[in-house]
Computed example of a mutant assay.
Amino acid sequence: MTEIDRRHPLRHSREDVETAEGLPSTPQTRSPAYRLAFADEDFLCRDDLRPVRLQLELLKPTLLMDEAQIDSTVVLFGGARVPRPEDRDQARTETLRDLSSQYEEARRFAHLVTERSLATSGGRENVVVTGGGPGVMEAGNRGAAEAGGRSIGLNIVLPHEQAPNPYVTPELAFNFHYFAVRKMHFLVRAAAVCVFPGGFGTLDELFETLTLIQTGRMERVPVLLFGETFWRSIVNWDALLDAGTIGQDDLDLFRFVETAEDALAAMDGWHLPRTRRASL
C-alpha cells in the first residue's frame, strides 16, 4: 500500500483507490459507473468536466511550487527553433543561424540570474522558468542547471516539437493541456519577463504580458526584449504609435537589451520595482 500522509483522522482517498483496485471482478465492479469519480480518467476527460480540469491545471503547479518554496521567478520566453551554437549550420534559414547567439545569451543570462538567486535567497527568489522545451527554453534551463540551481519547465502537449528538455529540475517539470492556464502560471510569480526571438508562441506570450500590464491586470515588472534588431524588424512599434492604437507611455512598458549583463542592469534599475506577488 502507498504510504499515507496522515493529516486528519478520516480515511484517506488513496486507501479507497487501492481497495477498489483489489475488489473481485464482477459485472458490477467492471462497470465504468462503479469507478471512483476522482480515479476515473474517462470521466475526468468528458467535456462536462472541463471546469474541473481547468481547476486542476491551475491548482497542481501552484501547490507544488509553493511546497518547493518558489517565491518569485524570472520568465524566459523564446523560440523552440533557435539552434544551439554548435548546431547553427544545420538551421534551415540564415536568420536562424544568426539567432544561435541568442541561445548562448539566454544560457548566460539564466546562469547569472541563478547564481544571484542562490547567493541572495537560497534559490527561492528569481527562479528561472521557461516553457521547458528546446531552443531558447532549453538554454534557460541549461544555464540555471550549470549554475547549480533549480529551474521550472512549463511544458504543453503538442503534436510535435515540444518535450521536456533534460535541464529542467524534474520535480518542477509540469505539463499542460490548456495554453491559457499555462500562461497564467508563467506570470503569477514573475519578477521579470525576458523575451528572446521566437515565433507565434513567443509573440503570443509577449503581447499577453504587455496587455496585462497596460490594462493594470498585472504589476509593471521589467519586460526585456533581447535583440533590438530582430524585434524592430518583426513589430513596427512606431507604426502602432503613429496610428494612435497605442500611446507613447505604452512604449515604456518594455526595453530592448542585447546581453545578459544589459538585462541584469535593466532589472536592477527598473523604475517601478516589484513589491508583491501577482494575484490569480
Rank of each mutant, 00 (worst) to 15 (best):
Leu187Gln: 08
Ala37Pro: 11
Met1Glu: 03
Glu171Asn: 15
Arg274Ser: 08
Gln28Ser: 13
Thr95Ile: 11
Arg116Leu: 05
Ala110Trp: 14
Leu203Asn: 11
Met65Ser: 13
Gly132Ser: 00
Phe256Gly: 03
Ser101Val: 02
Ala265Glu: 05
Phe43Met: 08
Arg255Tyr: 01
Ala139Ile: 00
Asp89Phe: 12
Ala80Gln: 09
Phe207Ala: 13
Arg116Thr: 05
Ala20Gln: 03
Leu154His: 12
Ile156Asn: 11
Ile213Pro: 11
Glu67Ala: 12
Pro85Asn: 08
Gln214His: 13
Phe226Leu: 04
Thr95Phe: 06
Met218Val: 01
Pro51Lys: 12
Glu94Met: 04
Phe256Leu: 01
Glu208Ser: 13
Asp66Thr: 10
Thr73Val: 09
Leu280Trp: 15
Cys194Ser: 14
Val75Gln: 04
Ser31Gly: 14
His271Val: 04
Phe196Pro: 03
Arg92Met: 03
Ser151Arg: 10
Leu76Cys: 02
Ala266Pro: 06
Phe254Val: 00
Ser25Leu: 11
Asp66Gly: 08
Ala260Phe: 03
Asn141Ala: 02
Phe256Met: 01
Asn236Arg: 14
Leu253His: 09
Leu63Ile: 13
Glu146Asn: 13
Ser13Phe: 12
Pro222Tyr: 06
Arg255Lys: 05
His111Pro: 04
Leu280Cys: 07
Ala163Tyr: 11
Met137Gly: 00
Ala266His: 09
Arg97Met: 01
Asp48Ser: 15
Ala106Val: 03
Glu258Leu: 02
Gly198Cys: 12
Arg150Val: 00
Arg217Phe: 02
Leu172Val: 05
Thr229Ile: 07
Gly153Tyr: 10
His177Cys: 08
Asp268Gly: 10
